[in-house]
């Protein structure tokens, strides 16, 4: 589903919800006021006289009477819109809306809206400083946005959770600069990343077992590092470190992988292999790839979003995006 479609759907739902007809809509109205007590209370205060004492005794009829007060109507519409928004959001995997983040007055992310569907692979391009990494920081809880909504799986508000919690919800992230545990073997790097309990106590008494070995084996196969399993990660080539990091993400068994510049510093052959690897991963998971390398993005063959100065400049197929005059200007302007 494209973003335009999502917006259409939202509008449709707002229309459907804001027309009070019969029992069905009364119920639809009653639901939100129960789940959003704050809004309900405010509305009550504006619409009922200050005596207020009798109010809780008969809340039922109040729902069917439409308040004549313009402020109350406005509030209701706002609430309904939010509800409908939630409905449209429900089918998305990642939902960013109106996200803004500034560093010392400089807007690294500026009113950014982005929707990733379940199972989708998306490539994100954009010139240096476009805010690609900052966007990932916001999704993974490293940076709190100043404004805007960030939802995972429809209704998990990511701005309320920290990095570890978000990682455990199923969002894996590869850093722009490959980061692995250099003094551990490849196997141990994967072992530490395997999904499972994350408590100190468990780590103290943990025993290696067969299923664990099998999972590690499987991941090593996927990232083509089986032969190097006992090598220290510090002794890997740059490209191999990138793969190891991707392997660590896979070990986490995430629903969504955020991959920041996976082919930076790779040879052509390695780049090709990485594209294959990511496509393979994308058959079972959602993937967001940030990359400058256009050849690589073409090889992925997925929908592309171009960021510029913290917001979406263009979105669509690679051909469409690269033909977009705004995109050309941004890239040629540098």
């Amino acid at each position: 589903m494209t973003e335009a479609k999502v917006i259409d759907k939202v509008a449709e739902e707002i229309r459907a919800l804001s027309q009070p007809q019969g029992v069905g809509s009364a119920q639809a109205n009653a639901q939100p006021s129960a789940s959003a007590p704050g809004a309900g209370r405010q509305e009550a205060r504006t619409s009922s006289p200050p005596s207020g004492m009798a109010e809780p005794a008969e809340p039922q009829p109040r729902e069917t009477v439409v308040s004549p007060h313009p402020y109350a109507t406005q509030l209701r519409e706002k609430r309904l819109a939010a509800e409908a928004n939630g409905r449209a959001r429900r089918d998305t995997l990642l939902y960013l809306d109106g996200v803004t983040k500034s560093f010392d007055g400089f807007k690294a992310i500026n009113n950014l809206s982005l929707v990733i569907e379940k199972g989708e692979m998306r490539a994100i391009i954009g010139p240096n400083g476009a805010g690609k990494t900052t966007m990932m920081d916001i999704i993974t809880g490293k940076t709190r946005p100043d404004k805007g909504e960030v939802f995972f799986n429809g209704d998990v508000d990511l701005t309320r959770h920290d990095e570890a919690a978000i990682a455990n919800m199923g969002i894996g992230r590869k850093f722009q600069k490959p980061t692995v545990f250099e003094s551990h073997t490849i196997e141990d790097n994967i072992r530490l990343s395997l999904s499972g309990p994350r408590s100190v106590l468990e780590a103290l008494v943990h025993r290696k077992d067969e299923p664990e070995r099998a999972r590690i084996e499987e991941i090593l196969e996927t990232i083509r590092l089986t032969a190097k399993r006992k090598t220290l990660a510090a002794n890997l080539s740059h490209g191999q470190k990138q793969w190891l990091e991707i392997g660590m993400l896979l070990a986490q068994d995430p629903e969504l992988l955020l991959v920041d510049e996976p082919v930076a510093g790779m040879t052509d052959a390695e780049t090709e292999e990485t594209a294959r690897l990511l496509r393979e991963i994308a058959t079972t998971r959602s993937v967001v790839v940030v990359e400058h390398d256009m050849g690589f993005v073409r090889e992925l063959g997925v929908k592309v979003t171009c960021l510029h100065e913290g917001s979406v400049l263009s979105e669509g197929t690679l051909d469409k995006v690269s033909a977009d005059p705004k995109v050309i200007e941004v890239y040629l302007g540098r």
Binding site: R173, V180, S183, L192, L204, H206, M248
Partner: peptide, 26 residues
Amino acid sequence: SKFGKLMIAVRDAESRTRFIGWRPEY
């Protein structure tokens, strides 16, 4: 122990441990 590996992981790349779901502070 695995905890020992985790300690070294925190020492070498604290943010990596955080982003694979551990809590380095603990």
